[in-house]
Each structure stands twice: as structure tokens, then as C-alpha cells.
Amino acid sequence: MRLTVNGRPVEIEADPEMPLLWALRDIAGILGPKFGCGIAACGACTVHVDGTPVRSCALPLGQVNGAVTTIEGIASEDRLHPVQQAWLEEQVAQCGYCQAGQIMTAVALLDEIPEPTDQDIDNAMGGNLCRCGTYPKIRAAIHKAAALKLAGL
């Protein structure tokens, strides 16, 4: 079957029951989305389908009805996405394993709510687990990313 991933067509020959995550990682070689739980309980595998965040570890290939965007596809040619830039400036990551998922959720949040409150952030990020406990910095980085985005950076 044919997927569109990060704006490019990707041909994947696999069982339609295979979760999108494994098609991306093992077949297409797109390794940004991470395997953490396999049951949509940790958010490490988060990607967007037509702009909506989904847990790719639980989404069967056969149900992918839209363009897929992964962490590899949010920066422009010469510039990080404002959320990535904010993550860099706030020095958010520790082990970094969950951060691709955290960033993808934050991108989706800011697309819907350009200036989120702490409450909005809590409501959006509960599905993304971080065992290193980077939450205080994630919160700060989302606020910074909102400012960067509004400033057109």
C-alpha cells in the first residue's frame, strides 16, 4: 500500500493489520517515532495523520486514511520547527526517548491553541510519559514555542 509520509510517497508491502509504527520503523526506515509500550499508553510513537496526533503503535496500516507526519517532517529545510527550537533553547531532553512523541503532541496542541495555558498543556500532554521527569521543562518549552510561533520565528 501507498502512504504519504512527510510529504513523500512511501510504498509499503505489509499486512494491513501491522501497526503504522512498525511499518515506518522496520520497513520504511523512519526511526523518529519510538516504540515504548505497543498499547497507546506512553505516547513515544506519536505521529500526525492529517494533523491529528495518533499513537502509531496501535494504528493498523489499513486504517491510515491521510498524510502521515513524523518528527522528521516538521522542520523546514533550513530551520527547526518552533517547538523543536524551544526544546533546544530550554534544554528539555534527558534520555530523549520520549521527546519525539512529546514534540509531536505539542505541535498539534499549538496548531489548535496558539497560546495554551498551563491547564491546556496538562490536558494535552497526559498521554505522553517521560520517565526522566522532564515535565517542568516541557511546560516551559511549550510556552516558549507558542511565543516563537506567534512571533513568526
Binding site: 518528527i71 526544546w87 533546544l88 521527546q99
Partner: peptide, 10 residues
């Protein structure tokens, strides 16, 4: 951190 860019770009 020397590993930060890698970790925000997947």
C-alpha cells in the same frame, strides 16, 4: 548539552 539537537530532531 551535546546530545540535544539529536534528541529534538528524532
Amino acid at each position: 548539552r551535546v546530545d540535544m539537537l539529536d534528541k529534538v530532531t528524532g
